[in-house]
């Protein structure tokens, strides 16, 4: 086992461990935004680590560029899909408003209504148009 193999092994195990943390976070976290926070760890850092390990192991083979392409593609597409999912989650009120520290998109709540009762209920109606 050479030094390159050791480095590649460390990268592979670290990336796999991030996938495990994604599973733990998806099971334990309370709402969609928290679960997205957990699930996007392997989407960027985990994939980058695993691809780095695979490139170190497979260097010299003809289609190693495909691994680099996968890493670049993950970096480009993960923010787009996360943005779309989180925007829809906010509008459909799948967000635990009582857990938010800062709610920059929120309108001021009318007096008497508690924000804590909004947790994960279906959308009563559109909050605002546009977009």
């Amino acid at each position: 086992m050479t030094v390159a193999d050791v480095v590649a092994s460390v990268c592979l195990v670290a990336g796999s461990f991030l996938c495990l943390t994604a599973g733990l976070g998806l099971v334990r976290f309370p709402d969609v935004l928290n679960r997205m926070h957990a699930a996007t760890k392997p989407q960027v850092l985990g994939v980058l680590l695993v691809m780095t390990g695979a490139v170190i192991r497979l260097v010299g083979q003809p289609i190693v560029w495909m691994l680099v392409l996968v890493a670049v593609f993950q970096l480009l597409t993960a923010p787009v899909s996360a943005h779309l999912v989180s925007r829809v989650a906010y509008r459909r009120r799948h967000v635990r408003r009582d857990l938010l520290l800062v709610d920059e998109l929120g309108v001021p709540a009318p007096s008497g209504s508690t924000a804590a009762a909004r947790a994960d209920e279906p959308a009563e109606g559109p909050e605002r148009a546009g977009g």
Partner: peptide, 17 residues
């Protein structure tokens, strides 16, 4: 999404090992 990323990581680990 996370499951597909896990599958991709598994395939990459197989290719690398």
């Amino acid at each position: 999404d996370a499951l597909l990323v896990t599958i991709a990581c598994g395939i990459a680990v197989y290719c690398a090992v």
